[in-house]
């Protein structure tokens, strides 16, 4: 049976090597100047080094250019795309059509993955971006299992689904943490707190903690739980989903590595030895639960949830 790719997010080149050893088939890397909410910051030098690791282990490298760009960065996109093309990265991940246009101009053979995080919600839109040049669509996290499989059944492009980790709920261009501190009159602390790690918003009514951080792309608010469906992979593997992503943003490298190992085992078993998978899957889930940070509960995201409107 076809095995989906296991795509993970390293925090550094050294970490990428560990992830390759842990069984990752592909990595998504990049820098915040062009990419959104990355687990680590990879300079051009790091990308060159990452390609060495990739060749050594046979791992594919996807580079994030999925920011929403304003005019000021449009002119430099070509240079970055050219660099990525020279390094022979395996694909560029984009959301903004400006990237698509740039790739057509300077590196027409470069593979593209369409990923806006929230707007890949039907099979027609996935195929539309396929006709425009994308080889893959990364589905919105707010879809349920039935919708995902229906999209896959109609898709003319590869389909990537996030199976683990936190997801982005909100991106604003405004400096919302900095603004709050300025409102409180704490002007001196703004720079320090803006880029601090471990910030979260507490929602009393739901007793939820939402991680929040600022970077060059604005303010990002993340989901209160980590998705974990290591014990629910059967339907998507049967449907032939092309890529399973573990997003490690805001997690420690050791945690990401361990989760990668466990999903490696889960995918292999589920594809090759279904009986053994059924026997082991609860244990695999328990092993993730055991290393879960105390403030990060696990859930199944929107895979089994009813959303109304």
């Amino acid at each position: 049976m076809k095995k989906p790719e296991l795509l993970v997010t390293p925090t550094s080149v050294a970490h990428m090597e560990q992830l390759a050893q842990a069984g990752a088939n592909a990595v998504m890397i990049g820098e915040q100047r062009y990419g959104l909410r990355l687990a680590g910051e990879f300079s051009r030098k790091d990308i060159i080094d990452a390609m060495d690791v990739a060749r050594k282990y046979g791992v594919r490298v996807y580079v994030a250019m999925n920011a929403l760009f304003h005019n000021d960065k449009v002119d430099e996109l070509g240079d970055y795309v050219r660099f990525l093309s020279e390094q022979q990265v395996d694909a560029i991940v984009f959301g903004d059509p400006a990237v698509l246009m740039t790739v057509r101009e300077v590196a027409p053979h470069m593979k593209l993955h369409w990923n806006t995080e929230t707007t890949a919600t039907n099979w027609y839109a996935c195929n539309y971006w396929g006709r425009k040049g994308a080889k893959r669509a990364v589905l919105a996290r707010e879809l349920n299992m039935e919708e995902i499989i229906d999209i896959k059944n109609h898709a003319e492009v590869e389909i990537e689904v996030q199976v683990h980790g936190m997801t982005c709920m909100f991106q604003s261009k405004r400096s919302l943490i900095g603004n709050y501190f300025e409102y409180q009159g704490k002007f001196m602390e703004v720079q320090q707190v803006k880029y601090a790690k471990g910030l979260f918003l507490y929602d009393k009514e739901r007793d939820n903690k939402y991680p929040i951080f600022e970077d060059e792309n604005g303010t990002h608010i993340m989901s209160p739980n980590d998705i974990c469906i290591i014990d629910e992979l059967e339907d998507m593997i049967d449907a032939g989903i092309d890529s399973f992503k573990i997003d490690g943003v805001l997690h420690e490298p050791e945690y990401i590595t361990e989760v990668t190992k466990l999903y490696r085992r889960a995918i292999d078993l589920c594809a090759e030895n279904r009986e053994q998978y059924e026997e082991e899957k609860n244990e695999l889930f328990a092993r993730i639960e055991a290393i879960q940070p105390t403030h990060r509960p696990l859930d199944t995201g929107f895979f089994f949830k009813e959303t109304v409107y």
């Binding site: 707007t119 919105a140 707010e142 991106q171 261009k173 209160p224 009813e306 959303t307 409107y309």
Partner: peptide, 17 residues
């Protein structure tokens, strides 16, 4: 206050799309 189309707070907090 978010980039339009890039906010799913309602989905997460109230299961409304």
């Amino acid at each position: 206050i978010a980039y339009s189309g890039r906010c799913v707070l309602s989905n997460h907090m109230t299961a409304r799309d």
